[in-house]
Design a protein around this nucleic acid. Structure first.
Lengths: 236, 236
DNA sequence: CTCCATTGGGTACGGCGTACGCGGTGAGCT
DNA sequence: AGCTCACCGCGTACGCCGTACCCAATGGAG
């Protein structure tokens, strides 16, 4: 991405005509990297490790990709490509948004390393464009385009923060063996001290009264999702 | 954080009684790290660089902090500590939430490296607890605690994703010298080709018709924030 | 006064991303 | 048909990183 083009790696052609046939391809490299990141996390997908997976040397990858950051961008667009949505919005905006939200969550859970990406700018990868088109188009029901942007942003915010939290809980569980429910039941002396101090009434209420944390993750997500969709409906 | 305690670094006492007087403190180290991260980004705040800032060696820091990740946790709680909110919710939930949302944004913009943190689990730093208490307490107006959690999550999602995007745009500007408005006006051939293809009607509409991207960042944020607060109001 | 836990800090290891340069390959032009 | 040279794979090397381990010096507890 030495290019000035804000579209980044996606505006850089894969290669020119001359010279020997390339032994690999961006797609091959990207898939290998995704495989490693799925299994061992994003930081395990180092240039050396990816190259080893392909049976070559680290520096060979730079014939295909300008930098590791650009490769990560390609990885992200690749997994976004696994999101299945209709070619066009169906006309039922609520069903459409629910679909894209649920599928996005599934995709994140299948590739938890996406939670570690910095990306927050508009996405210009071909697959990202497709999903964005679908999401915005679903809400194209006669309201101003600025409202579409705001509402989609709000929904996206819900999905992203919720799924990030879910993924962090899962990582915690793998590290310490404790589920959320485990230490919600005052397993930690530090947390217990917080509750006993009386300084944190809302935390106490959450630990004692909230039903949401005791539902299955799927149900938690869906419950919140429907509330957000309700909000969108009442904002239109 | 070798400890099993899920509260992490905050449950690890700073030190025991014996031995020579410590030359530094967690607070000193944390502040130095924040100073560096503010100036040059999170990855510039390496153990060596922080130690150099304090005039010591990298390994000395490990007398105060178990790992760099824990130090980052302390850095986060430290900047959260700069968030000013009333001791208790005022009774005007809308004003309270607006305050905490705006102040959170200001804090993120002052310390853009917070956008790079992985943290998404509940926060047990003392300052994080204080803000969480305030936010949840603001919505404690007779609705079920599960609804409080969901609505706060939605609001938080809006703030986080919006400010993250803002920070990424600013980074892009520093790298390439282009503002968002610059290449919204078809500066990029790649984007121009996308628009010309006719495959992306919503993208085209956003680039051509949307007013939001042409407002000041402050106004963009406030506009969306009021919409989200409207949504919350209509959900109660 | 003695003991020893705790201090600051140096050295070293195994990783990382990637700049650079080499010899070999083969498509395109003459 | 032969030449040219852009492009190939890839090895070496540099300067970072986090941190394990070790040491001599320190100073409160007994």
């Amino acid at each position: 991405m030495a290019d000035v083009d804000a579209a980044g790696i996606f505006a850089v052609p894969e290669r020119q005509g001359r010279g020997p046939r390339p032994a690999y391809s961006r797609a091959q490299i990207t898939e290998a990297a995704v495989r490693i990141a799925d299994a061992d996390g994003l930081e395990a997908a180092s240039m050396r490790r990816i190259a080893a997976e392909l049976g070559t040397g680290a520096m060979s990858l730079y014939r295909y990709v300008p930098s590791r950051d650009d490769l990560i961008e390609l990885m992200y667009d690749h997994v976004v490509g696994t999101l299945e949505v209709p070619a066009r919005p169906t006309g039922d905006w609520r069903a459409d948004l629910r679909l894209v939200a649920r599928n996005t969550r599934s995709m994140w859970l299948a590739h938890p390393w996406v939670a570690d990406l910095h990306r927050a700018r508009p996405a210009f990868g071909p697959n990202q464009l497709r999903i964005t088109e679908f999401g915005l188009g679903a809400l194209d029901v006669g309201i101003p385009v600025d409202d579409i942007l705001t509402l989609v942003n709000m929904l996206n915010g819900y999905v992203v923060t919720t799924v990030r939290a879910e993924i962090e809980w899962e990582r915690e569980r793998r590290r310490t063996g404790m589920t959320m429910r485990d230490w919600m039941r005052q397993s930690s002396p530090y947390v217990q001290r917080l509750l006993d101090s009386g300084e944190h009434p809302m935390l106490t209420r959450v630990v004692k009264d909230a039903a949401l944390p005791h539902m299955s993750p799927d149900d938690q997500f869906d419950y919140g999702l429907e509330r957000v969709l309700d909000c969108i409906a009442s904002c239109m």
